[in-house]
Design a protein around this nucleic acid. Structure first.
Lengths: 199, 199
DNA sequence: TCGGCAATACGGATCGTCTCGTTTTGTTTC
DNA sequence: GAAACAAAACGAGACGATCCGTATTGCCGA
């Protein structure tokens, strides 16, 4: 039974934890974010408020945990980006996928809620960077380093800057709703970035 | 006396309006944004709550008006960017100035509050784009067109894309606090953008 | 049996609405 | 002109509702 320590203790804990995070995601996806209250989450999860406050100090922490749980489901191991040897094609694939993610209303609302909390809580911003943004950035940088070795990217380029130029326009366009997140736009960003950091 | 039409009608209105917007800016600059309540604004402005609700339907509308009033003070006429003939130097000047603006804590908190509201209110996002973002964008595009004519920028470049690549990284770095907004970083963005859109 | 839980009561804060008198403004009258 | 008046806008704050975060209670499962 006990494959590891003694996780039977926490089966009940884990069940309510997942119920809370799922209820949070569901409510955020459905309603205006200001109507997502702790009481609503508790009711939706079939859980007492105290069970929530026992684990998280604030709504922002809950939302962060709800997003974090999504990415933890997916990867037991580290993230890896496609590497076919063609940087331009690989990046366009990733950028198009990113643009499509943002087009999903449920994802859109969840990430919007997270960004709202991050923007107004510097401590949460640090946690976001370390637990969510950094691992993804590292995977992206690994792909870029591979391209540098292959002579497809300026070997002296600051990879943080490359990623900023590549992704920030997409992010801003999404956040401010200043234009549609089309595949064509994603492709343009790849083309522009590769021209700017050509070897 | 009456230099223009007859704005004496609204002397009282205008006084309370300015008091409310000034109180909003002061509170946002001082406190955590979630503690900026309508009641606090009313008290700080020495105004009844009803006077606020009579004019604005929500806190987001008040914050927007508070920011809008700042930019309306400055320009009776349209905005113009420096044009010395040297695009690179002119852009670096503007980018450095923008980076410095974000470094001011009062401005930082105010724009952070505005972005929070914009992100969660699509209608407000449209108003933001039309009344605040667009005029600035037009001024920037005018400078870029001048550069295109001077052969300093690809004549076929999509100017919206140029502006995205130039400004979005700075904005994202500020919003997510992912790094310091130094003059060196601002300069890098100009260099990168000009290389990407070289004639 | 006992620890963790759902449910719920609780005081406090803020919401948005609603009266209150009071002050300001514009008009009328002498 | 100045005094008097009516309408409008206002400051203040009471009000019921909601949600906050905490504390209590009784139940249920290991």
């Amino acid at each position: 039974m006990s494959t590891e320590k003694g996780p039977d203790h926490s089966r009940r804990k884990e069940r309510s934890r997942q119920a809370i995070l799922a209820a949070t995601r569901a409510l955020v996806a459905e309603e205006a974010y200001e109507k997502v209250t702790i009481e609503a989450i508790a009711t939706r999860a079939g859980v007492g408020k105290q069970t929530i406050y026992r684990r998280w100090p604030s709504k922002s922490a809950i939302v962060f945990a709800a997003v974090l749980a999504l990415s933890e489901d997916a990867d037991g191991q580290s993230i890896t980006l496609p590497d076919t040897g063609d940087l331009q094609a690989d990046l366009k694939l990733v950028m198009r996928a990113t643009a499509e993610e943002f087009a999903d209303p449920a994802f859109d609302r969840l990430i919007r809620a997270l960004n709202t909390e991050i923007s107004n809580d510097a401590a949460l911003a640090v946690e976001y960077r370390e637990k969510l943004a950094r691992p993804l950035e590292e995977a992206k940088k690994a792909r870029l380093r591979s391209a540098q070795k292959a002579g497809q990217l300026d070997a002296n380029a600051d990879l943080d800057l490359v990623l900023d130029v590549l992704y920030a326009p997409l992010f801003q366009r999404w956040l401010h709703r200043s234009g549609p997140l089309t595949a064509a736009y994603a492709d343009s960003l790849v083309d522009v970035t590769l021209k700017a950091f050509a070897p």
